[in-house]
Write a protein that binds this DNA or RNA. Structure first.
Length: 260
DNA sequence: GCGACAG
DNA sequence: ATCTTGTCGC
């Protein structure tokens, strides 16, 4: 009952109708305001999503955010859980204004996400977004943009790599393994920085087929290594971390509920 | 002009 | 992202 996080930077809320140059300029501002290093209250070692080892544990509140689409409307769902137990679920239906443009995702889905955040009655300790954070052309992916606007710890979890270069092959990694992603020529403002990790949360036993890794990057107030640790701790037998899976399922549920 | 890119 | 059943492999 603490209420949703306030808009720490209302001036940086993504505005869809402003033109590419302006949007990119704002992303540079976002990147300069972002902190890609650990700066949060909870103990990362207590993060878990599943049966608690000891009954007296009190894991942090983690919010998973995902969206589902219905014509030109988007359903933004947020599921907040603590140690695997769902604490709250909220969603918002918002009209979409611009199409998906690689690099400008936050301007399409950011506003809708903030609409859902406003519905929260709890205050999550960590936000897990669907998409990149620092792994972005201007180091301002949607996880970073939302993290800075709300000034909350956040991480980005993407299913494919937007930009940056893995330091080695990411094919067929074993579950639990990770490979650093470094900034390259596609990432302006930095060079050779460790902007995220390819994280293998799950893998098949057979040599035939293999699962691709997740691409995890810092959103805001979380370092790259910690972001990878957190995602591994939040995964439970599936490729996607549990908070994301719950938000995904809830978004679909709300979608069919809203559908007409 | 070509390439190439989260959701 | 979304349209969608079965089906390959352990």
């Amino acid at each position: 009952m603490n209420g949703p996080p306030k808009l720490a930077r209302p001036d940086l809320v993504p505005d869809p109708d402003r033109g590419r140059e302006t949007m990119e300029a704002q992303q540079r501002d976002i990147a300069s305001e972002a902190r890609f290093a650990d700066d949060f209250e909870f103990d990362p070692a207590t993060i878990i999503d599943g049966p608690l080892a000891t009954p007296d544990e009190d894991p942090p509140l983690v919010a998973g955010i995902d969206q589902a689409f219905l014509d030109d409307r988007v359903i933004s769902a947020i599921v907040v859980s603590r140690g695997g137990e769902v604490v709250e679920r909220v969603y918002a239906v918002t009209d979409l204004s611009i199409p998906y443009i690689p690099g400008l995702l936050a301007f399409r889905e950011g506003g809708p996400i903030l609409d859902a955040v406003a519905e929260l009655t709890s205050t999550p300790d960590l936000f897990v977004f669907d998409g990149s954070g620092r792994i972005h052309f201007r180091e301002a992916g949607i996880a970073t943009h939302m993290g800075v606007v709300l000034d909350v710890p956040s991480v980005g979890v993407a299913k494919s790599l937007l930009c940056g270069t893995p330091t080695r092959s990411v094919e067929g990694l074993a579950a639990g393994e990770r490979v650093p992603i470094e900034s390259d020529e596609d990432v302006t403002a930095t060079a050779g920085e460790r902007i995220g990790y390819a994280v293998q949360t799950r893998q098949y036993d057979s040599p035939n087929r293999h699962i691709n890794p997740l691409y995890v990057s810092p959103g805001h107030r979380v370092g790259a290594a910690t972001a990878a640790d957190l995602v591994l701790a939040l995964a439970d037998g599936y490729k996607l971390p549990e908070p994301t899976r719950r938000a995904d399922a809830y978004a679909d549920e709300a979608k069919s509920l809203v559908d007409d």
